[in-house]
Nucleic acid binder design. Structure first.
Length: 444
RNA sequence: GCACGGGUAGCUCAGUUGGUUAGAGCAGCGGUUUGUGGAACCGAAGGUCGACAGUUCGAACCUGUCCCCGUGUACCA
């Protein structure tokens, strides 16, 4: 007899994709609720765009134009390339360009949606995640930029973070522009190496970043990264520029002034905030957490920022429309959930059903009668959904955290009563049918 | 991409200098108990030792290549 080889489909998930369980989802729902509250309060419109866009519509603005499609999930439909969106900003630009005549100007909208990135996942970073994005389109007024920072702070605090749990860091493309003038560096390539190095100060510290600005750096696994090969005096200039506490650029001065009017002070000027290289044109911001985040194994991991944004004044004009300024902010919701779960105790009310035990399939009519009575009172309830002995039914009830089990056997039917067992105390009582609901309400 | 560490039962993991039939705990299944759960006891079952090739009388173990996972790093809208 020839044994047929069983080809088992993998039960593992593709790298970077995750199942999300109830606890996480409930916290996520809570955060989303808080976001929506704040967005309504701040007067933003709610928008949804599709998951797929034409690759060109969102890919055209990839920072690395040499490799379009890199980093996104794409497939060819008929003769057109489609891609899953990798953020919510590019689709917004497309939306604005498409609906230019219909939208109010300026246009404020927020969006919550899943985005996908085809890149190596890391701790707390997935290839599919939920993003929140709020933007002002069509205004150069820096009050918009300032308000985004105030707004994100309000969202975080409404979610339960304390003031010293997070900080909004601000900087501006103008800061680095003048820095490179001072350094007399024009080479795009060199500039981007330097910017990327500066971006890492948070994680690596100045000593390591200094190596990246100079010859290069070896990381702790032995891997080597080439540096920018700057001269010592140039590095000194950069170091000095980082130690400035108050920004010299006009835009940031103005934003800070507006912060004062909002009585918002949980920000910090940090010239090492870089964000996207070819993307932002003015003020940029980043939201960082001030506490350690651990992975499932309890190791402290490099968590990075949970969100950020800035001004991108030429995104919409790429679609052939007129120059149209914009500023926005994005937050990785799942990352926020992950961090928040460790910082805050959520008293989640996970409701588990009252279980009606099945003694005899022939009495199903009776069980359903009880079930409908409970459900009509809005009590989460179910008839034991499997088959098997009472012991098994009890094990199930225990497993799903059922508050109590209802037994209706022959005796109970005879006396027109039910037996209710409180699973937290183990106590059982027999009670007349008409008092059942009240008794159960006492237990749950 | 690069570096380091992993891949053994459904899950978490042991497995000696290469040696015969590869182990444990948990889960699952059956029973002790056909009206009672939250770590009770007993029993049976469960494996291409990530894949392929090589070395060897003999490989979970050694070598090579590849795949997958983790961490760091690079890139990052």
């Amino acid at each position: 007899m020839e044994k047929q080889k069983k080809i088992k489909p993998p039960k593992e998930l593709p790298s970077g994709f995750e199942d999300r369980k109830e606890k996480e989802l409930l916290i996520r729902d809570f955060i989303i609720l808080k976001i929506k509250e704040v967005m309504v309060k701040y007067g933003f419109q709610y928008l949804e765009t599709p998951s797929f866009e034409y690759t060109e519509s969102i890919g055209k603005f990839l920072p690395d134009k040499e490799r379009p499609g890199e980093g996104v999930f794409s497939f060819k439909d008929e003769n057109k390339w489609l891609s899953l969106r990798y953020d919510l900003t590019a689709p917004l630009a497309r939306y604005v360009a498409k609906n230019f005549n219909e939208i109010p100007k300026p246009f404020k909208r927020y969006q919550l949606g899943t985005v996908w990135r085809n890149e190596k996942p890391g701790p707390g970073r997935f290839r599919e995640f939920l993003q929140f994005d709020a933007d002002y389109v069509g205004t150069k007024n820096l009050q918009a930029d300032a308000e985004l920072c105030v707004m994100i702070s309000e969202i975080l605090e409404n979610c339960g973070l304390a003031k010293d749990d997070y900080i909004v860091k601000i900087s501006s493309r103008k800061i680095t522009d003048t820095l490179f003038e001072k350094l007399k560096i024009q080479s795009e390539e060199k500039i981007s190496i330097i910017l990327r190095a500066l971006d890492k100060i948070d994680r690596l510290g100045w000593t390591e970043v200094k190596k990246l600005l100079g010859e290069g750096r070896k990381d702790k696994s032995g891997d080597y990264t080439k540096g920018a090969n700057l001269k010592d005096d140039q590095i000194k200039i950069i170091e000095n520029s980082l130690n400035v506490n108050l920004p010299e650029s006009e835009d940031l001065k103005q934003i800070i002034k507006i912060f004062k009017d909002y009585k918002f002070d949980n920000y910090k000027f940090d010239p090492s905030v870089i964000r996207g290289l070819e993307y932002y044109t003015g003020p940029i911001f980043e939201v960082n957490l001030n506490f350690n985040v651990k992975n499932l194994k309890g190791q402290v991991i490099q968590f990075g920022s949970i969100g950020g944004g800035g001004r991108y004044d030429n995104l919409v004009s790429n679609f052939g429309n007129l120059d149209y300024p914009a500023t926005g902010i994005s937050v990785g919701i799942d990352r926020l959930v992950f961090a928040l779960m460790q910082k805050k105790e959520f008293d989640l009310k996970v409701i588990s059903p009252v279980m009606i035990s099945v003694f005899d399939q022939n009495n199903m009519k009776k069980y359903i009668e009880i079930l409908m009575k409970l459900r009509s009172e809005n009590i989460s309830s179910e008839i034991y959904p499997g088959e098997g002995k009472i012991k098994k039914q009890m094990e199930y009830a225990n497993r799903i955290n059922s508050p109590c089990v209802i037994f209706v056997g022959e005796e109970e039917i005879k006396n027109s009563e039910v037996k209710i067992k409180d699973l937290s105390t183990g106590k059982e009582i027999n009670i007349k049918n008409e008092n059942m609901v009240n008794e159960i309400k006492k237990i749950i």
